[in-house]
Design a protein around this nucleic acid. Structure first.
Length: 464
RNA sequence: GGCCGGAUGGUAGAGUGGUUAUACACUUGAUUGCAAAUCAAUGAAUCUCGGUUCGAUUCCGGGUCCGGCCUCCA
């Protein structure tokens, strides 16, 4: 009955207790918009979409905020390379991101704040930190956070200040008092986008935007804060430092981090160059298959990107749609609803265990198929409706079964009318007991990627 | 070097101190003109060495291997 969530900070599953139930404030770090989203980005989007959907289905009134970083070094650099303004660059990729998300059936967050729209709130927070002695302006106009002033620094990532210092993989920068200090406000170079501030013309550092935007969209104290696993340090650690020093109290109750998408057991990332963009993969696989694939392992575990795994996701989805195919949906009886939704909720309440949720769907599909076989169409219709409803909670099973099964990626060049004509011809041959001819037509279609199924309801087809 | 996570059947991927995950693939039976789909049955795994325990894949410790963070990264 209660939702349990794994908290990255305490490293254990905890009972989820919102600060002001049923309201839940959830902030997720979105992407920096200077390029197309890849499958790793897609995983974060889809996972938190799944999480919001489930929390809402459990009665929580979630305010879901996911930011857009639309100003930073890479954006500036890319805009210069392209000979365009940062604004036209970011607008283009924000649009692309929204298209990709829509394809993957990701619901839009309630608020998508952009860093450039919160400059005042950002400089206000920097000023507070300066006033309280947690930050200082350097000679060049940069403002830095004084890490050693925050005793709890490292509590999220399990790092210790002393060890970080000896690690010494930090930039040497004579503007900083300490190498660990991080930038809150960056003085702008000529030609760079800039905003005025008490410390001169400049732009926000990366970490501060999330502290400021979460405060102004949700509040100073968040129920859930999430993002990709790589953001745990330093980004989220720095957010904690900024927010807790500025506000004087706890910033986040539950930290959630989504595991990486790997390629050959290595993290998919821009810098390694081993990434696949969402829109590229969409050319080869239906969006629903990608979504299923992304949810097929637990959100915290690594997920290996391979065509084999995508093919497997497609095959699994075909089984579910195969069960739904040809069944007329009817409202399920209350006892059936509770039996199956209880099973579903039990595993989803346990830290959003989507692989087990899928197992429930497959069990349900088996029951649908059994009911179909025993000609109990009413039972089949009820179970199928449950399967659709639960699948929809995960953002899948949103297509017409026949559309999904016949959709595929068409390479055969046959129109539906062509296929239908062949099926008619084969049926005629069958009726005439000319099985050689019938089989020859079926084989012909099969080599074109079309599979014929003779069912009690008649002959149907699907793409292999 | 510091910190963290992981090793499960052919593949993917969960749970569990003793009892079926689930999916794909494989085998057999039913069904079918033959198929496909479906149902049924079967086969198939818990990295290694110790410890705790009546009993460990599960808990604890060592080892090996893999990955991540410590610099921008979802």
């Amino acid at each position: 009955m209660t939702v349990h969530i794994y908290n990255s900070q305490t490293k254990q599953k905890e009972v989820f207790k919102p600060i002001q139930a049923p309201h839940v404030g959830m902030y997720v770090c979105g992407i920096t918009v200077y390029d197309y989203c890849h499958i790793g980005h897609a995983r974060v989007m889809v996972c938190f979409d799944m999480i919001v959907r489930h929390l809402r289905s459990r009665g929580y009134d979630v305010k879901y905020v996911r930011n857009i970083t639309d100003i930073d070094d890479k954006i500036i650099q890319r805009a210069i390379e392209n000979g365009e303004s940062t604004q036209t660059l970011t607008e283009r990729f924000i649009k692309a991101m929204h298209e990709d998300e829509a394809a993957l059936n990701v619901l839009r967050p309630d608020v998508e704040p952009k860093a450039t729209e919160y400059i005042t709130q950002i400089t206000d927070m920097v000023q507070t930190l300066v006033d309280k002695g947690f930050a200082y302006a350097a000679a060049n106009g940069d403002v830095y956070f004084r890490v050693e002033k925050f005793a709890d620094y490292g509590k999220l990532s399990g790092k210790r200040i002393e060890e970080l210092q000896s690690g010494a993989r930090v930039d040497v920068n004579e503007q900083k008092e300490s190498p660990l200090d991080f930038v809150l406000w960056k003085a702008s170079k000529p030609d760079e986008p800039h905003w005025s501030s008490p410390w001169g013309e400049g732009r926000p550092g990366w970490h501060i935007e999330c502290s400021a935007m979460s405060k102004h969209t949700i509040g100073e104290h968040l129920d859930i804060h999430g993002g990709g696993h790589d953001l745990q340090f330093p980004h989220h650690e720095n957010e904690i430092a900024q927010s807790e020093c500025a506000h004087g109290h706890t910033y986040v109750n539950t930290w959630m981090h989504v595991g990486f998408v790997n390629v050959n057991n290595e993290k998919m990332s821009k810098s390694l160059g081993n990434f696949f963009t969402i829109r590229d993969v969409l050319k080869s696989y239906p969006a629903e298959v990608i979504r299923f694939f992304l949810l097929s392992s637990h959100y915290r575990n690594p997920l290996n990107y391979t065509t084999e795994n995508l093919d497997n996701a497609r095959a699994a989805l075909r089984r579910l749609y195969g069960a739904l195919d040809g069944v007329k949906l009817v409202t399920p009886a209350a006892n059936l609803v509770s039996q199956w939704t209880d099973a579903y909720n039990a595993v989803m309440d346990d830290d959003f265990n989507t692989p087990q949720a899928f197992a429930v769907l497959f069990d349900l599909a088996t029951e649908v198929n059994k009911a179909k076989a025993t000609k109990d169409q009413y039972l089949a219709g009820q179970l199928a409706q449950l399967l659709v409803s639960l699948g929809n909670q995960l953002g899948i099973l949103t297509s017409e079964p026949s559309a999904f099964l016949q959709g595929g990626i068409a390479t055969d060049g046959l129109s539906e009318a062509d296929i239908q004509a062949k099926i008619e011809a084969r049926l005629a041959a069958k009726k005439a007991k000319d099985f050689t001819q019938a089989d020859s037509i079926r084989n012909e279609l099969k080599s074109a990627g079309i599979e014929i199924l003779d069912t009690p309801q008649g002959t149907t087809w699907r793409r292999i």
